[in-house]
């Protein structure tokens, strides 16, 4: 029971990060490999601000800093490459990733530093003792995902995002400013990453310049498992991967192979269903 809950909450973290990958891929048609490092930026933001203020304010600062970083990276690094080859954009994204890690290393050094978060304790649900951080991660994570889904489905900007992801040219003919939509997408994706970084710190309370690499790559795997470009896909993929990870680590025989099993799952799913669980095959009709 607690393994399942832990898995779901880790899954929520992966899902929040995966949403950033999948939305940016869907709308800007690029793989933003620097997305994992946004988590690191968020974590350091919390690390620094927590020293002088309370947690809530630290969280707000972290979200703002991540959103700004995401938007600035898009503007400076990706926007000039809008019509360049996908490979150039991909390499640039990897470059941005190293740039962010390097900057963090310059400022904070390369060692990992512990961060003291207020202890949240645990609560009793029925017969089970559940840690409060698990409940918060799951609850807030679910809330954010529902909010995002409603935003995309029910608002003018959300619909424009769907339209751009399907057909940029046609969306422009409706009067949609594609650059603005891409900017909003980066801002939303980075905001979700900031939230994820807080939940991640609740699980592993230490910061380092490469902190974003592992959750980043796993969330990317989750986005691909769910079907990259698909928002519900990222959620399903993230939760699935989180569950698999926690279940594997709870079984002693499987524990050492956890990461291998997770990425094995990715390979198997891609073999069986190359477009991912909830991916859509775009049809062309003339």
């Amino acid at each position: 029971m607690s393994t399942i809950l832990d898995g779901l909450s880790l899954g929520a973290i992966y899902a929040l990060i995966a949403l950033g990958y999948t939305m940016v891929y869907g709308i800007a048609k690029m793989l933003n490999f620097a997305h994992g490092d946004i988590i690191m930026v968020g974590a350091y933001a919390i690390f620094v601000t927590l020293a002088s203020t309370n947690l809530l304010l630290a969280l707000v600062v972290s979200i703002l800093l991540c959103a700004v970083t995401g938007v600035v990276v898009e503007k400076l690094a990706y926007k000039p490459l809008r019509s360049a080859s996908p490979l150039a954009v991909l390499i640039t994204a990897i470059g941005v990733s190293y740039f962010l890690q390097g900057t963090a290393q310059l400022i904070f050094g390369s060692k990992s530093q512990p961060i003291t978060l207020p202890s949240l304790g645990s609560i009793q649900i029925g017969n089970f003792q559940v840690e409060l951080r698990t409940v918060i991660t799951l609850g807030v994570g679910a809330l954010l995902m529902v909010g995002l889904t409603l935003f995309v489905k029910c608002t003018r900007t959300g619909r424009a995002m769907l339209a751009v992801s399907e057909d940029k040219g046609a969306a422009q003919l409706m009067g949609v400013n594609v650059n603005r939509i891409i900017m909003i997408t980066f801002a939303i994706g980075s905001t979700l990453a900031a939230c994820a970084s807080f939940f991640y710190l609740l699980q592993i309370p230490s910061v380092s310049p490469t902190l974003g690499a592992m959750p980043g790559i796993k969330a990317f795997a989750a986005a691909v498992i769910g079907g990259i470009g698909s928002i519900p896909g990222a959620m399903v993929g993230g939760v699935l991967l989180g569950l698999v990870e926690k279940i594997c680590t709870s079984i002693p025989v499987l524990n050492p192979y956890t990461t291998a099993i997770e990425f094995g799952l990715l390979i198997v799913i891609l073999l069986v269903r190359p477009i991912g669980l909830l991916g859509v095959r775009r049809r062309e009709k003339v």
Binding site: R156, R159, A160, L162, A163, E166, D167, G169, A170, A171, M174, G175, V176, V280, R282, R283, K285
Partner: peptide
């Protein structure tokens, strides 16, 4: 080039984007 994954209604809403 209608938006294949949006409904007829949502397509019309997109048309009224301005």
């Amino acid at each position: 080039r209608v938006f294949q994954e949006l409904t007829v209604y949502e397509n019309l809403l997109m048309g009224a984007y301005t």
